Computed example of a mutant assay.
Amino acid sequence: MRVHPIKAYDDNYIWLIQPGSDNTVIVVDPGDAEPVKDWLKRHDARVDSYFITHHHWDHTDGLEPLLDDFPAPVFGPRDSRIKAIDHPLSEGEQVQRLGKTFDVLATPGHTLDHISFHHHGFLFCGDTLFSGGCGRMFEGNPEMYVESLKKLRRLPGDTRVFCAHEYTQANLTFAKLVEPNNAVLHSYLEKIKLMRQQQQVTLPSSMQLELAINPFLRFDQTAVIAAAEEHAGQSLNGDAEVFATIRQWKDNA
Rank of each mutant, 00 (worst) to 15 (best):
K83N: 13
A228D: 10
T159N: 06
Q208T: 04
G121K: 01
L105M: 08
I14Q: 12
Q221D: 14
D48V: 02
Y13N: 08
I115Y: 06
L40E: 00
P30Q: 13
R160V: 08
I225R: 01
G31E: 14
I246L: 15
D61Y: 03
W39G: 01
V25G: 15
A164D: 14
V95H: 04
A253M: 12
F130Y: 15
M195G: 07
P5M: 00
I192T: 11
Q234I: 00
Y50D: 06
R78C: 09
G135I: 05
A170I: 01
A212L: 15
R153K: 15
P73N: 11
F70S: 04
E64Y: 01
P19S: 15
Q208A: 15
V104G: 13
K151A: 09
I192A: 09
S21R: 14
S21I: 11
H56Q: 10
P35C: 13
H120M: 07
M1G: 15
Y13H: 13
V25D: 13
G109Q: 09
S187A: 09
R136K: 11
K151H: 04
S205T: 11
A223S: 10
G99P: 10
H43Q: 12
R196M: 07
I26D: 11
Q169K: 14
K37Y: 09
L129E: 12
H55W: 08
P71D: 13
H119F: 03
C163L: 03
K151I: 04
G126R: 05
V184R: 06
A175C: 05
V27A: 06
I82D: 13
A33S: 14
F124T: 04
P5H: 00
L152Q: 08
E210G: 13
V74N: 05
H56L: 02
K150T: 10
R81Y: 04
H119M: 04
Q234R: 15
L98D: 14
P30S: 09
Q197E: 15
K41L: 06
D11N: 12
K193P: 10
F162C: 01
T107K: 00
I14F: 09
P35Q: 06
F117G: 06
E166G: 09
A253H: 12
E64H: 02
P77H: 12
L129I: 11
R218N: 01
L105F: 13
L105C: 04
L16S: 13
T222I: 12
G76L: 08
A227D: 02
S116V: 03
P108R: 06
P215I: 00
D68E: 15
Q200P: 12
G92D: 11
S187W: 01
M144G: 08
N23C: 05
D79A: 10
N252Q: 11
S116R: 05
F138N: 06
R196E: 12
R78Q: 11
A106C: 05
E190H: 11
I17T: 12
I85Q: 07
V36I: 03
A240C: 04
L66T: 03
L194T: 15
K83V: 06
V146P: 02
V242S: 05
R196K: 13
L189V: 07
G109N: 08
G132C: 07
R218F: 00
C163S: 15
V146L: 04
N12C: 01
P30T: 07
D113A: 08
T159C: 09
L112R: 03
T173P: 09
Q197V: 04
T245E: 15
L149F: 06
Q94K: 04
D251L: 06
Y145Q: 04
